[in-house]
Design a protein around this nucleic acid. Structure first.
Length: 279
DNA sequence: CAGAATACCTGCGGGC
DNA sequence: TGCCCGCAGGTATTCT
């Protein structure tokens, strides 16, 4: 799915289109996503003016004065502005129609995403309240990661993909950041040195920032709010490159399953960290 | 408690 | 050509 840079890209594209716009009607054709879409959505949102969009992790928040629409794109979701009265296809589950004739369409073939409504502070919502720090803020530091990792044997790749620790990092950017920081993906989180955590934090901030600048990563089907792909895929160092030469040292990149996720790394640039007696 | 497995759903590519 | 299998960018929940 869209990871943090992709959600950020979509949000930035939507801002000028729907902020301050008034919702006329919400049409839901398929309620069964990861959680059911509330039946009251049209009633809750009709005639309401959209405020300032924000993002928390991979959740997009669309506020109106009586509550907030919370959208997650799962693995295959997209959110696009399409011409008014565009015919809908099989996986076009939700249309939000604005009084200025803007049509915002939510599409999600795999239906792993979510469209939820809360009248309360969205940040206190069950799905958001336990989320970890935002990686692009000053709260995300080597010191923070190292403290949270103390005594833990979980693989560092799984650790940085854990949204209770830090949000927004999925399989693509986890692999990229670990390569940039020259850290082997299975290194127990509690064993990384302060220096390694410093390199990792720097790499994560760098790769996410770069990906946002490139409009996100399109491997297969990611498109922004205007239906255009992102360009970061061209700069991927390891993700989707198993069997190809490392861009740094030409060694053949390897892949293996880690917690059921495909994991690519360079065996030379990311050597196994061998100090398992310390835990 | 930590860590691993499982569940949700559809589309696609590869192998036969 | 068509069928079956495995895999895909996520994450809450269930299990051991």
């Amino acid at each position: 799915m869209p990871e943090l840079p992709e959600v950020e890209t979509i949000m930035n594209g939507l801002k000028p289109q729907i902020e301050q716009a008034v919702i006329q009607e919400v049409v839901v054709r398929q309620h069964q996503l990861r959680w059911p879409i509330p039946l009251t959505l049209n009633h809750d949102l009709s005639k309401k003016k959209v405020g300032f969009l924000s993002r928390r992790g991979k959740y997009l928040l669309i506020p109106v004065d009586t509550g907030t629409l919370i959208i997650h794109l799962g693995m295959s979701g997209s959110l696009r502005i399409v011409p008014d009265k565009t015919p809908f296809n099989r996986h076009d589950h939700v249309d939000i129609i604005f009084s200025n004739n803007t049509l915002l369409r939510y599409t999600d073939p795999r239906r792993f995403g979510a469209v939820l409504w809360t009248k309360d502070n969205a940040y206190q919502h069950q799905l958001l309240k336990s989320l970890g720090v935002e990686p692009l803020t000053h709260h995300f530091t080597a010191d923070y990661l190292q403290k949270r990792a103390w005594g833990r044997r979980v693989a560092i790749k799984s650790f940085i993909m854990d949204s209770k620790i830090v949000v927004g990092i999925g399989n693509i950017y986890a692999a990229e950041a670990l390569f940039m920081a020259t850290i082997h993906p299975t290194t127990p989180a509690g064993l990384l040195t302060q220096t390694q955590y410093q390199k990792l934090v720097t790499a994560i901030k760098q790769v996410l920032t770069l990906a946002i600048q490139q409009g996100g990563t399109t491997i297969k089907d990611f498109v922004n709010s205007q239906g255009k792909p992102g360009y970061f895929a061209q700069q991927l160092l390891v993700y989707a490159r198993a069997g190809l030469p490392c861009r740094q040292c030409q060694t053949t990149l390897l892949s293996f399953q880690l917690s059921l996720r495909n994991t690519v790394f360079c065996p030379k640039c990311q050597p196994v960290f061998n100090n398992s007696d310390s835990l």
